[in-house]
């Protein structure tokens, strides 16, 4: 077992720091504690990886195509707006 130093963080705290960590919003001290924890904890490393994959997959959500009707409608509006 790891002996917990007083200022070490546990997994349940680490998962709450992930977003601030990725945004570079942690204080230098918290960042160090978080990274130290990560180095010692394969589960939290896996968790951070899962969050990164979640972000990546969210970024690759395929947008729906415009329907032909919506396209016609918007072109018609465009012509009206331009002529007004």
């Amino acid at each position: 077992m790891l002996s917990l130093r007083r200022r070490d963080i546990v997994c349940q705290q680490a998962v709450e720091l992930v977003t601030d960590y990725l945004d570079g919003a942690l204080s230098r001290r918290d960042r160090r504690r978080f990274e130290n924890h990560l180095r010692a904890c394969p589960n939290c490393s896996a968790y951070l990886e899962q969050i990164k994959i979640t972000i990546e997959l969210t970024g690759s959500i395929q947008p729906e195509d415009l329907t032909p009707q919506a396209r016609t409608d918007i072109v018609e509006l465009y012509r009206r707006w331009r002529s007004e």
Binding site: V10, C11, Q12, Q13, V15, E16, V18, P42, N43, C44, A46, Y47, E49, Q50, I53
Partner: peptide, 22 residues
């Protein structure tokens, strides 16, 4: 909670190992 508290033991450590997606 970012993660369901039931996933942690009473020391705040993961009760079961996490899967590596990559």
């Amino acid at each position: 909670h970012a993660v369901d508290p039931a996933r942690f033991d009473r020391n705040g450590q993961w009760a079961d190992p996490l899967e590596r997606w990559v």
